[in-house]
Write a protein that binds this DNA or RNA. Structure first.
Lengths: 216, 216
DNA sequence: CAGTATTGACAATACATATTGTCAGATAAC
DNA sequence: GTTATCTGACAATATGTATTGTCAATACTG
């Protein structure tokens, strides 16, 4: 009872820690491999090799390839989400400023880390209903950062139309990002942000108009 | 020499015609099946069954599944392209009118034919470089309908930025379409068109500003 | 140092599907 | 009605990969 050590230490870590580390290595490796050959081209074996682990450890942490994809996605998106929220918050209360700040952070990270970019921009679509649901949720979160629903409290009646505006906005930003990445960043971050922001502004202003019955 | 009939007739058609008909049946069946289980879930066998043909005929017309996907995509997009061009032309010279006409046709067709919609909205992404190239080309074509480059002749200097605007526009429209379809058309066509148009207008007006050195 | 938990390499299995091949029966030509 | 062509069903093969299992080598514990 007194010596209730959880497990034998290896490399200074107990069993739990080692497992967590392997899990992380697999996620990192997955992002790497997805970025090179795409999700569907990524075999379990290739990911394990990249992670310097064997297949046994793959199934220790993940039920199947899809589970790893979702985990990798969550990993990338979780970070980004935090950072964007923080950047928006730091920019104050002005909607335009918050927008700029969040987008600038987004495109900056995109340029710094091209591989993860591919995971959550491209690879994530149309794998399975489960994966699509995860993506949908993530997009909603990002859209809320760019156009905070809190700033738009009357959004009860025209919810559906407002939702299409959010969707269009996020679609525009992601498409721009995809192209920008695949063409290897031909424009400066500020320029891309300016372009993306102009689409986001549509969602902001149109939502306002629509609330006022300014339809069509 | 005189009796240079190409081949024996079956069902009133010669060999060539029969082959063409089978090819078409396969394309139609593919669109149907993709619409139900997605491209990656669509086996050669399932498509052949839907087409009421056997695998032998699949390989008669297509080298592999990917070739059929590309053919199906071209089939759907070709039609749509013609119709949108015609609708835009019929709407006269006013950019706003052309835009409305093209978008209205797009969303109307989308509602009429949900299955093809899925093929060219969702299934087409990230299958392979070849398929992506086909898609990229198609998107460029559509973007040219919505914002004709002819109306924008000075587009030589700031080409790259203008290109991102087009990309964003098309991305917004497609995302809106996807959501609208997957939620089973909660808004009227006119309303969706209005929302989509507001994103397209960004591409039109921003392009103008940028030409005037109105950057950032 | 002896013993055991843990690891890494790799074999064995399972499975799904693409792709090619076979052949009996149907259909048109003469 | 006979023959050559074409068709449809299905078998046979090939391939690639996920998933599980085995086992010797390694790293820690006492």
């Amino acid at each position: 009872m007194a010596s209730s050590r959880k497990a034998r230490l290896y490399g200074g870590m107990d069993a739990e820690e080692r497992r967590a580390e392997r899990r992380l290595k697999l996620i990192d490796a997955a992002i790497e491999v997805y970025g090179e050959v795409g999700y569907r081209g990524a075999t379990v074996k290739a990911i394990c090799e990249a992670a310097e682990l064997t297949e046994r450890y793959f199934y220790e942490s993940f039920a199947n390839s899809e589970a790893l994809l979702i985990a990798a996605y969550g990993h990338v998106v979780g970070h980004l989400h935090e950072e964007m929220t923080a950047a928006a918050a730091a920019a104050g209360d002005d909607a335009e400023m918050r927008l700029r700040a969040a987008l600038t952070l987004y495109f900056t990270r995109l340029k710094q880390h091209p591989k993860p970019a591919r995971v959550f921009l491209l690879e994530i679509s149309g794998i399975s209903p489960a994966v699509d649901a995860v993506k949908l949720d993530a997009l909603r979160v990002f859209s809320d950062i760019l156009v905070p629903p809190a700033l738009d409290p009357k959004r009860s009646g025209k919810g559906a139309a407002a939702s299409l505006l959010s969707v269009g906005m996020v679609g525009a930003v992601i498409s721009i990002a995809l192209r920008w990445v695949s063409k290897q960043y031909p424009q400066a971050v500020e320029e891309v942000v300016a372009i993306a922001a102009s689409f986001c502004r549509v969602a902001l202003t149109e939502a306002g108009h629509r609330e006022d019955g300014h339809l069509s």
